Computed example of a mutant assay.
Amino acid sequence: MQENYTTTYNHLSLAERQLIEKWFKEGMSRRQIAKLLGRSHQTINNEVKRGQVQQMDTFRAYHIVYSSEYAHQQYHKQRKKSIKNTKLDKLVLEKIIHYIKAKVSPEVIAKAKFNGQISYSSIYNWIYNGKLGLKRKDMLYPHKTKVIKTVSANPRVYGKSIEERPEDINRRNELGHWEIDTVVLTRAKNKVLLTLTERKSRLEIIRIIADKSSEAVNCDIYYAHAYSSWERGTNENHNRMIRRFLPKGTIKTTTKEVAQIEIWMNNYPRKMFNYSTPIQVYLGG
């Protein structure tokens, strides 16, 4: 039996509802379940009312029981109704604009900042319809024409291939394994950013180094293949987040500015963690 089950987000997940159903069948009380899930007793009471259904036993007698599947369906129906009724009033508008200018994506705004009370598709519609008064430069990733790169027939071998990386690391089951990359700010010979991303928690470390040479980056590394960005998807996603603040062509940046970006990224809610942050996941082990 799972003990001390805790959560960092507001609404019950399907997995939690399935645990509630399982524990009821095992004879647990609502207070016991609330304690195990780290929820209030009232939350469990409300959830049980939402998920009540009639079930017939082998003797053809009907009983009221809790169904996790039915409760989850009812929850989403209620959420859709609340989302449809949400209006873009002054308070909502100001809050959305504040977070977009703080480089937060519409999806994270909807889920983490409004607790799902508005949909991220509504935010996108308001942006494209001009209701938020935002310009192209305010968007995180304006569409650009992508340059197609060609791969050399004889690519340079830098070190151990990513194919040699142990499967335990690939599965992201434990803390302590890091992906490393460099972010070039300008084509001119200049300082670059060295990024280290912890694979399980996505915790980020960013440092300014002299250049992207192997001498400047002295670590035990499993190298990805040339132009194979899908082999280091976490790095690529994090580099895009850095570009929100330091777009290509940035000539200068400071240690203080880089530190602020690092703090921002480590406290940015992530969908993969049910909108917990990397620092929360890292500290939680």
Rank of each mutant, 00 (worst) to 15 (best):
H76R: 00
K95D: 12
F273W: 13
K131P: 09
V217C: 12
M56K: 11
P166I: 01
V104T: 09
I33S: 01
M28I: 10
P155F: 08
E26V: 02
G51R: 00
R17K: 01
R244E: 12
L246H: 03
V151C: 12
V183L: 05
R240K: 13
N4T: 07
K25H: 13
V108S: 01
V92L: 05
T197W: 07
A112N: 08
Q55I: 01
H41C: 13
P106C: 05
A188K: 04
K252I: 08
V258K: 00
V104E: 03
T195K: 11
Q2G: 06
N239H: 04
R232K: 08
Q74I: 00
E21R: 00
L246D: 10
S13C: 02
D89Y: 14
K90V: 13
V53F: 03
E215G: 06
H63M: 11
Q54T: 09
R172F: 07
Y223T: 02
E94N: 04
K131Y: 14
S161L: 09
Y75E: 00
T182Q: 03
E231R: 06
A188G: 14
I44W: 00
S276Y: 07
T255W: 12
T145C: 14
S201G: 11
K35S: 07
K101P: 14
I44T: 00
Y66W: 00
L194Q: 10
N4M: 12
I83N: 01
N218R: 03
Y99S: 10
D168I: 14
A102R: 12
N4S: 11
K111M: 14
I33Q: 02
V258D: 10
T6D: 15
T8M: 07
N266Q: 13
I263C: 09
G284M: 03
N218K: 07
K103S: 13
A226H: 10
V48A: 01
T145S: 10
K189A: 11
M139G: 13
N46T: 05
W178P: 11
K84R: 11
S201F: 03
V258C: 03
W126F: 02
N46E: 02
T182K: 10
